[in-house]
Amino acid sequence: MSDLTLSPASHVTLSPVREAELRQVAVELESSFLAEMLRHGGLGTPRDSFGGGHGEDQFASFLRTEQARAMAASGGIGLAESLFNALAARDGAAQ
């Protein structure tokens, strides 16, 4: 059985630019995940009475996306940090 574990990101030396890029990608991935969870949780689904019709349905995804971005930017659920560590470790192993 082969060992596929990578060294922790704390042992990887990245340039400040590359670190910023990886952190942004990690936050975007967490944001996408949170938006999908918010969709399944029902955020933005129209109410039965006094709903906004088809327009509300079409723009609800924008609400979920922005809500998810705000959540991820303020710390989110910790997924971005895990993703960043994995990406940084993979990036360091490739160098």
Rank of each mutant, 00 (worst) to 15 (best):
M1F: 13
A93D: 11
G52K: 10
V17G: 03
A70Y: 13
A70K: 09
T45V: 15
S7C: 07
R39V: 02
A93R: 10
P8W: 05
D57L: 14
A20H: 09
S31C: 06
F62C: 02
D57T: 09
E28A: 13
F62Q: 04
E56A: 15
L34D: 03
E30P: 03
L29A: 11
G44P: 01
R23I: 08
R47Q: 06
D48V: 10
H40S: 02
T13S: 13
P16V: 00
E66G: 04
L38N: 00
P46N: 04
G76V: 05
A20M: 05
A68W: 12
S31E: 13
V27M: 08
L83R: 01
L4C: 04
A73F: 07
R64G: 01
S10L: 03
A89E: 10
R23M: 06
H11Y: 08
R47S: 12
E66D: 14
V25S: 02
L14G: 05
N85K: 08
L14D: 13
S82W: 02
V12L: 05
M1E: 08
V25Y: 13
A93G: 03
F50A: 10
A88S: 07
E30I: 13
Q95K: 12
D3E: 12
L14F: 15
Q95C: 01
V12E: 03
R64K: 03
P8Y: 13
Q95Y: 08
H11S: 14
Q24H: 05
V17D: 14
A93H: 12
P8K: 14
L4S: 09
R39M: 06
A35P: 00
T13C: 00
S7Y: 07
F62H: 11
R23Y: 07
A70R: 13
A88E: 08
E36L: 12
E28V: 03
R23V: 05
D3N: 15
A80M: 06
G92C: 12
Q95I: 07
V12M: 01
Q24C: 01
A73H: 11
L38H: 05
S10R: 15
G44E: 07
F50M: 10
S82R: 14
F50Q: 02
A60P: 00
D57Q: 11
F62T: 05
G41Y: 02
Q95T: 05
E66T: 07
G75P: 03
V27I: 15
S61Q: 11
L63K: 08
L29I: 14
E30N: 03
G44F: 01
E30A: 06
M71P: 00
F84V: 06
S31T: 06
V27Q: 09
L87E: 08
L83V: 15
G52S: 09
G51H: 09
R69T: 01
H40V: 04
L79C: 03
F84A: 07
M71C: 06
L83T: 11
E21Q: 14
T65W: 11
S10F: 01
H40T: 00
G78C: 00
A94K: 13
R23F: 10
S15V: 04
R39H: 07
R90K: 05
L38W: 03
A94Q: 09
E81Y: 02
S82Q: 12
G76A: 08
G55Y: 07
E30K: 06
R47E: 12
A26H: 06
R47Y: 04
S2T: 05
G75E: 09
G42F: 08
V27C: 08
A35N: 10
N85V: 03
D3I: 14
D48K: 09
